[in-house]
């Protein structure tokens, strides 16, 4: 079986494949895998409180996999701050949040500190 990775639904791209069934908190099936993500599906799942889905893990190894996780989180953080004005102060805050995540990830022994 191919490796899967859990990703934040809000950060997924259209066309990515959901490879594990998605259920709501009561266990009701919302999406049967495999199914490609489209804007309508994403909107429906987010409205039902689904925040993460499984997609194929294309990474070639653990280090690469962990780097992808970090990169995804960086992108997700930037996206969540994207409604703020593009000022030097706001850029600084985004970098502080990203840096804290990198420190956290390194502390957990996943990747060497950057």
């Amino acid at each position: 079986m191919a490796r899967m990775m859990k990703v934040e639904l809000a950060t997924t791209e259209d066309g990515e494949m959901i490879v594990q069934d998605v259920h709501d908190m009561l266990g009701r099936l919302l999406v049967r895998a495999p199914r490609r993500i489209d804007p309508e599906l994403k909107r429906m799942l987010l409205a039902r409180g689904i925040q993460e889905v499984f997609i194929p893990d294309q990474s070639s190894g653990d280090a690469e996999y962990e780097r992808q996780i970090v990169e995804q989180e960086r992108d997700a953080i930037r996206k969540r701050f994207s409604r703020l004005q593009d000022t030097p102060d706001n850029k600084r805050i985004v970098e502080i949040f990203i840096r804290a995540f990198e420190v956290f990830h390194a502390e957990k022994g996943k990747i060497p500190p950057v």
Binding site: A10, A47, R80, F81, D89, F97
Partner: peptide, 19 residues
Amino acid sequence: ASAYGLGHPEFPFVDGDIL
């Protein structure tokens, strides 16, 4: 909480002045 993905799914953005 919002910045690290535990916000509200309907508005998953940071909209305040953290600094």
